[in-house]
Design a protein around this nucleic acid. Sequence first.
DNA 1: TAGATTGTTAATCGATTAACAATC
DNA 2: TAGATTGTTAATCGATTAACAATC
Lengths: 205, 205
Amino acid sequence: MTHRETPDIIVSRLPVYLRALSHMQAQGKQTTSSQELGQQVGISAAQIRKDLSQFGEFGKQGTGYDIGFLTGKLREILKVDRVWDVAVVGMGDMGHAIARYQGFTDRGFRVSMVFDSEKTKIGEKIGNFIVQDSREIVNAVRKAGIKVAMLCVPAPFAQQVANQLVEAGVRAILNYAPINLSVPNGVWVQYLDPSVGLQRMTYYL
Amino acid sequence: MTHRETPDIIVSRLPVYLRALSHMQAQGKQTTSSQELGQQVGISAAQIRKDLSQFGEFGKQGTGYDIGFLTGKLREILKVDRVWDVAVVGMGDMGHAIARYQGFTDRGFRVSMVFDSEKTKIGEKIGNFIVQDSREIVNAVRKAGIKVAMLCVPAPFAQQVANQLVEAGVRAILNYAPINLSVPNGVWVQYLDPSVGLQRMTYYL
DNA sequence: TAGATTGTTAATCGATTAACAATC
DNA sequence: TAGATTGTTAATCGATTAACAATC
């Protein structure tokens, strides 16, 4: 029998567990339980234990989980026990905000280059970065070995920029443009479209 | 037997269908099929037909779906056949970007007031809005009857601001702060944490 | 008519929950 | 020891897929 792959849906919950654990840790807590963590993130205790058991035995009967230890394990599993350099394309308001965002610290990412195609923006300083010409994406991203990118260009340009990023070796794209991207196998996309988020809630109002 | 509720997971896909359909429509297409739409959004044709059948019969055998008609139906179902006024709290870089974002047009939302707690920002003009004092949230939001809000404050303030929004009558919160919110039943939250999005991909790299 | 595609049923597949022995 | 909580199994529940009659 071949080894069963971890379901995507489990992987997708781990970052949420990690965020909650980091929050507990910041509050000085040492240990937690599947019950407490579940309450925090709105998931049943049984499911949390089941999810974690996919990757190993991280808890102790009677006491629960050491937060520091479990945090370390989840970071390893998610491969954010390192720092990934990230390229950001599109220096409109959203790209601008991301280039200056402080929230990636300690979560595995660091913006390392930013691009735009507008002449008036190229060469400008945003956050700690000099805006580079989008025509340099393939060369610069490939040369730096960057595997992770954030896409903040207007929808009509998103697919072509995604193509360039893929050509440059990028394998994970966080897409802020409100459009579906088509990418080859082995490249992952996550969508952060605020209208989609809002529309997922209005149904219930 | 009691009426079976539509599963959340189906509801969560509808905005994605809607986005793809609008895109096709903008390209001048008149009709589509479950196959074509599925390809576009990365979901099987059978699932799209099953999802839509929860709400009615919107297609024609042999021809597929009229894009304009289906778009209209999905807008009704998701209750975005109207325009929801949205309050945005937190005028840092992210809130700033959202206040000026043009992407809500025709998708059911319109930013209608913005707040910040910093003296230096209150009264400032951002986009078309004058920044209001966060202490006015409960009064102003309730008075305007606003039900939808976007939360762009730093994580340590997110829960308390969420509480105020709920008190003001808000029932849907799009949360950009990297923290889990606790809200009463009948209030919905969607999370847009870029680090979570990125961490959901690095596992596979 | 022939070809295409829907809506729906039944079968399959996968995810969640409940329960509990093990044990800290 | 008594209480708490894990990791895991089996049972339940729910979602996806395959297949096809209906029909445009």
